[in-house]
């Protein structure tokens, strides 16, 4: 394609091609401290393209394609090209990854042990991981944690952190020196701003961790903590994993192993500070 960029995030290599220069320039800037794909061969190809040639110029609108595609994926305006690239990369992960059980969770690590935080969009998993990282935890990822069924270890996927709405200000306050992408107003998911993970998160992204705690956070409620029964945790994690079914036996072994190995806890929280205190209290009690 006309413009191209390759990058490796954790164990996964991407090649992103685009009909426009702008999204590629933004990716090059924000991912500049990341390595390229292993052996120069990307795991996944992503394409940002104009449906018709003239749509490169007239009301330019970015179609999302790649190795794996959803027919109903709606195009985005060119000024949201970075979002289009990130969505397309997420799509490859969700539909294409086979080596790891893909957990829709953010993850932070301390002393080789990881806390996984999972939940629906808006549960605050990105914000929580960012705030914990500001308190000395190693940031492993805000969207996907990659569980290796063979080892039981979880691998980092520290892509650009996708901050939404009020999460943007909270993360900026916690990480005043962080490099930020453009503020994308009025996207289908509200205001979005991408933050580059801290240098340590990128430098250590090839170091996996042993899962120690599985947290199901829920934002907007009075602080409360309750254990999640194993069967409920199992079902919620099968729903939070886009490739559980595709992995077959490995997925079953990986997930039942995880549920047996670590405590599962649901936390309701009214604000970031409470959530941090709740997670760290659970951690201390392990």
């Amino acid at each position: 394609m006309r413009h191209a960029f390759s990058v490796r995030i954790g164990p996964i290599g991407f090649r992103i091609g685009s009909d426009w220069r702008a999204p590629i320039a933004t990716l090059e800037t924000l991912y500049r401290n990341y390595p390229g794909p292993r052996d120069g061969v990307a795991d996944f190809t992503v394409r940002l393209f104009a449906r018709r040639p003239w749509r490169r110029f007239v009301r330019p609108s970015v179609e999302i394609g790649g190795d794996y595609m959803l027919p109903e994926a709606a195009p985005l305006p060119l000024r949201q090209g970075l979002l289009a690239a990130e969505m397309a990369m997420n799509l490859q992960m969700a539909l294409g990854v086979r080596r790891y059980l893909l957990l829709h969770a953010s993850a932070v690590e301390r002393d080789g042990h990881a806390v996984l935080m999972t939940g629906i969009s808006g549960a605050g998993k990105s914000t929580l991981a960012t705030l914990l990282a500001a308190r000395g935890w190693r940031f492993m990822g805000d969207e996907f944690a990659l569980l290796d069924p063979a080892t039981g270890l979880v691998h980092a996927f520290p892509r650009l952190i996708s901050l939404k709405n009020e999460g943007i200000a909270a993360a900026e306050a916690a990480w005043p020196a962080a490099r930020m992408g453009p503020l994308l107003r009025a996207t289908p998911k509200g205001d979005i701003r991408h933050m580059v993970p801290d240098a340590r998160a990128i430098a250590t992204m090839d170091t996996p961790a042993t899962p120690a705690l599985l947290v199901f956070p829920r934002y907007g409620f009075a602080a409360e903590t309750r254990p999640v029964p194993p069967a409920e945790a199992f079902v919620r994690m099968t729903q939070a994993s886009t490739n559980y079914v595709a992995l077959g036996e490995a997925g079953f072994r990986g997930l039942t192993g995880l549920i047996a190995q670590v405590p599962s806890v649901a936390i309701d929280y009214p604000d970031g500070a409470s959530a941090i205190a709740q997670v760290e209290a659970l951690w201390s009690a392990l």
Binding site: P230, F234, V245, F252, T256
Partner: peptide, 22 residues
């Protein structure tokens, strides 16, 4: 079959179909 008792529920992976049952 692969069988993993969870609590009141047992997770069962059926090899022939690749389907997990609770």
């Amino acid at each position: 079959l692969l069988i993993a008792p969870l609590d009141a529920f047992t997770a069962v992976y059926h090899r022939a179909s690749g389907i997990t049952h609770l």
